[in-house]
Design a protein around this nucleic acid. Structure first.
Lengths: 221, 221
DNA sequence: GGTTTTCTTAAATATTTCTTAAGATAAATT
DNA sequence: AATTTATCTTAAGAAATATTTAAGAAAACC
């Protein structure tokens, strides 16, 4: 399995290279966005890992650039912990999955295999989390296999939760995601959206309130 | 059943090869457009799968080239996620069916069998989806077996929907399909076409509105 | 060239979704 | 227990989005 790793940090890159090599991946490691683009053009990889915090080019640029050129291999994006609100935009820009640093190499390998499985046509783009599931390609949401209809903001909210289950999402991060660039929310819009989403999910406890901080999605019992 | 698979990606190709072999297809797998053309010339296949994203030659070229040479076996085309607007042009160029990646191998096999059935004269080129059906060769449309008369754009819209039922088609993708290369639509033409199509279909709910995203055709109840 | 059909545009209407605000409830603090 | 603070709930008005209608422009047909 050919894998392209785009990562500027020496320590992290080395760890990933070693870890994935031991797990049957053939890793090609480049350290700059420029090198990434020229490597993608050669189109000989099955999957790629792209760190957003590159020194020379914005990682999102790289992503858009290679997608525009028709490269359609699965790409997993690495982000720093505090860039999670960008996640939705990244997925729209063509990322297939993402992980926040620091991460576990076992999970990384598992996610890569999942991406490859999905790509080969055996599975859909469904992401599950306990009774909740979303299909990022069709924007459908399910509870216990039954489809529920969500508004745009409700879906974006749920997508954020499902993408990082059990993670506590701070209120300001969620608000940044929900509000457009022009319009700043200075009311309790977030709470109302959470309330409506909870109602549609059926089980209120699925979205847990962390008082003074934010919310998180519970998946396990 | 002899099948020619034209696919450059190792992972995807292998998945298809294995999946179809298990389903009684004899798969010959080539990885380049050049190899595809020379293999097609030998004319010993019953059906073919052609990936558009080939490294050496444009897939559409391959398609036109082999059709020009009189090869008339059914060809199913594989396209990337965001090329769905090319679909109609592909069908015009000689493709018999298409699927977007990623896909389900079961569906792939079903479609291939449908193509072969049609070819052997037992069935027409009808594609069904609940009460709706279209005949891609005669460009006729039916609701509950009764024929309805559609304008060109209405038919193309319905064909897009029927080809990928239950998939949410983003507005911009549909607009790209409906508008010619020269003329850009900057009005609500799309909505008007959807409205007229709905009226002719009789049942408004068949075409579902996904607010802020696009439309989709519902087939199941 | 004239007729007919289809397509686009635009404005009026309808619908859904979002935001706001205010009172109710619950948790933390004193 | 009373007070403060944060969150939940509800409902109504505002904003965004979609539908419908109709008329003129463009294309297709004869």
């Amino acid at each position: 399995m050919q894998l392209l790793l785009v990562e500027d940090n020496q320590t992290l890159g080395q760890a990933v290279e070693i870890g994935l090599s031991q797990r049957q991946f053939m890793v090609t490691w480049v350290r700059t966005g420029a090198a990434a683009i020229s490597n993608f053009n050669r189109q000989e990889y099955d999957v790629a890992i792209l760190d957003l915090g590159l020194p020379d080019i914005d990682g999102e640029r790289v992503l858009q650039s290679i997608r525009k050129k028709g490269v359609d291999i699965p790409i997993l994006v690495l982000t720093a912990r505090d860039q999670t609100s960008d996640v939705i935009h990244l997925l729209d820009a063509g990322a297939d999955d993402f992980m926040t640093k620091p991460f576990d190499v076992n999970e990384l390998a598992a996610r890569l295999r999942a991406l490859l499985r999905r790509r080969s046509g055996y599975a859909s783009a469904k992401i599950e989390c306990g009774p909740v599931a979303i299909d990022t390609s069709s924007r459908e949401a399910f509870v216990n296999g039954r489809e529920i209809t969500l508004s745009r903001k409700e879906y974006e909210l749920l997508q954020l939760f499902v993408m990082q289950p059990m993670k506590v999402h701070p209120r300001d991060k969620i608000e940044a995601l929900l509000s457009s660039d022009t319009h700043v929310v200075e009311s309790n819009a977030l709470e109302v959206h959470v309330h409506n989403l909870r109602k549609k999910l059926g089980q209120r406890e699925l979205i847990e309130t962390i008082r003074g901080v934010g919310y998180r999605l519970r998946c396990k019992d």
